[in-house]
Design a protein around this nucleic acid. Structure first.
Lengths: 220, 220
DNA sequence: CTCGTTATTTTGATTAGTCAAAATAAATCT
DNA sequence: AGATTTATTTTGACTAATCAAAATAACGAG
């Protein structure tokens, strides 16, 4: 069994690797896991020795097929737990990330399968993040964001990628939840601002950085 | 925060101490936790240093008020999780103990409170074990067992204390579940056998050891 | 009361995961 | 190309939890 620590490293490498097999830098990994860089190097070497990761010294790390399999399992657990906490226990979507962070290492496949069935085999979690299948398939569709998508076209929010409670509170307060229909009414890259108008609701202005965390698809 | 290991030691000391404040021997504790005796000694000294336990060298260990508080919290989490797994996820009562053993260290109070409310604030788990209240009150009523209770009187099973899957399978197979009405039809201590007859069902013979794990109350 | 059995404690080592700080390699900027 | 900045790796040390095996204390039998 992979320890919680190993699971966290693998999950984080998966999340940080833009494309599949793309190298993740030690610095980025260390920051994401809140450890000093030397610790990340040490752990990555251990992961490589166990066949879970490939370490290209001085350049970065990528997952092996086996490491990716484990990481997808962790991600599936995390996202199904988040969905359960929101859908069944009616918890706030802004707080479930931290809860799932703990539970994802303690839940068994038997319990997870029941949860999955209870929830009706959801495809995404409450943030719109895709849930890997039991077979390890992860929907990797690329979406536009409020920072990059078309202006003055009907759009629909499909996903909010930033997981911090503060950001999610902001999104919730302005009605920027997955499923919301809206359009971008203005974008000023110089000022770093994006203005959007919900189909139902008043206009909202947000930073380009924040807008980049909100993924959208063309929507009626 | 107490580590999982610390939580397990405290919980086990609580479960093994017959009466409140009663000393638990190192041997019993080490066996229950599946560690060598020296390890238990070392950990107990650490618990004592943290003010969670009182160590009387060569004689045993007991919980402090604070240690007991923590232990009751762990027990509450364990038993509520078991109840959830059986009542909501419809899992088999024979397998939920092992699951809860992991989850009890990962679940937060926020999630636990929701679970408790969803389940309607149950007083006991599926095995009939009492669930400590959020305030740390544990029902410590003493019951007779099939090995010690009256013969030829109407009884009702209130609790099955042994948690191993094998024992629970046996109990389930013979319909010896909490709530079952029955009476003891025979008891032969020399042979170590007890025979019971369910109000609805055929007679069952079990060892005195097994009978001692099944707690009963007078029942119509 | 002494001896031997049994339980407990001590000692010395090991593993996983971590940090601080020094050493090194790569990248960047004249 | 050479010097400086930046990222990464290495080294040495630490903590929590564990085991094996030796040392010690309590207890019961004679």
């Amino acid at each position: 069994m992979a320890s919680s620590t190993v699971e966290n490293y693998l999950k984080q490498i998966l999340l940080l690797s833009a494309a599949d097999g793309e190298l993740v830098s030690m610095g980025a990994l260390a920051t994401a896991l809140a450890v000093v860089p030397g610790t990340a190097t040490t752990m990555v070497k251990a992961l490589a020795a166990e066949g879970l990761a490939l370490h290209r010294p001085r350049y970065g790390v990528a997952l092996t097929a086996e490491g990716r399999r484990v990481a997808l399992g962790v991600l599936r657990r995390h996202r199904l737990i988040e969905t359960f906490l929101v859908e069944v226990l009616k918890m706030d979507w802004t707080e479930v990330h931290a809860e799932a962070e703990q539970l994802e290492h303690a839940i068994s496949d038997a319990v997870l399968d029941r949860l999955d069935a209870l929830l009706g085999h959801p495809a995404t979690d409450p943030h719109g993040d895709p849930i890997p299948t039991r077979q390890g398939k992860l929907d990797s569709q690329v979406y536009a964001t409020l920072a990059t998508g078309p202006v003055e076209r009907p759009l629909r929010i499909v996903r909010v990628t930033e997981q911090s409670a503060e950001f999610l509170h902001f999104a919730e307060a302005h009605g920027l939840l997955p499923g919301t229909a809206l359009r971008v009414t203005g974008r000023n890259l110089a000022a770093g601002l994006v203005t959007v108008k919900k189909t139902a609701g008043r206009p909202v202005t947000l930073s380009v950085a924040a807008a980049g965390q909100i993924l959208v698809a063309p929507g009626k």
